[in-house]
């Protein structure tokens, strides 16, 4: 068939060679050269180029697939972690609320207890102070009595220019003390 085409084209070519018929005239030599060169270059590509390119593309495709799968796994893990974190956060908040509530209750209890203790201590101190004041008052009254007695005797002896007997001294002191009013001191000490 090729020979037929060539022959047909060749016949036409002899008639119109000058008009450029060589443009459509197939040349067996060039066709053989073409097939030879094409066959060789196809063998080179088949052996040296296509497998390497296909392998690299497949490797990259696999890497992309792995990366996508890994990203999906990471996303799922992240979501699980987030859910767990949220759950824990919720629990932690509940615990915190409970702790705060307990602390508040405890604080109230401590405050109440402290107030009671404070009140008791205050009462105790007040009672002690009262006792101390009363004791001091009594001691002061005693001292005043003694002082009044001494002063009364001394003043009387100076006025009368005589030494008083024990019986006179006793009478004078009792009179002087009888005139003194210690009730205000007693009330104040109370």
């Amino acid at each position: 068939m090729l020979a037929l085409i060539t022959l047909a084209a060749g016949e036409t070519a002899t008639k119109t060679e000058a008009g450029g018929s060589f443009l459509v005239k197939p040349g067996i030599g060039l066709m053989v050269w073409t097939l030879l060169i094409f066959g060789t270059s196809m063998a080179v590509l088949y052996k040296l180029a296509f497998p390497a390119i296909a392998e690299a593309l497949d490797k990259r495709q696999k890497a992309i697939d792995d990366a996508i799968a890994s990203a999906d796994r990471s996303k799922a893990e992240s979501e699980a972690l987030l859910a767990e974190y949220r759950e824990r956060l919720k629990e932690a908040r509940a615990q915190a609320d409970e702790i705060v509530s307990k602390a508040r209750k405890s604080g109230d209890e401590v405050e109440r207890h402290a107030a009671e203790v404070g009140q008791a201590r205050r009462d105790e101190l007040i009672e002690q102070a009262k006792k101390d004041i009363e004791g001091e008052t009594r001691r002061a009254i005693g001292e005043i009595r003694n002082e009044v007695a001494s002063l009364t005797v001394a003043a009387t002896e100076k006025v009368t220019r005589k030494t008083l007997t024990a019986e006179d001294q006793k009478r004078l002191v009792e009179d002087a003390l009888g005139e003194l009013d210690f009730s205000s001191l007693g009330e104040r000490s109370n």
Binding site: W33, I37, S41, L45, L48, A49, P51, A52, I53
Partner: peptide, 23 residues
């Protein structure tokens, strides 16, 4: 024409093999 076919084939093989070996 043979030379053009040859050059094209050489360019094709060199380019493809060069790129294939440096993927």
């Amino acid at each position: 024409a043979t030379m053009y076919v040859l050059i094209a084939a050489i360019l094709m093989c060199v380019t493809m093999v060069y790129v294939a070996r440096r993927m």
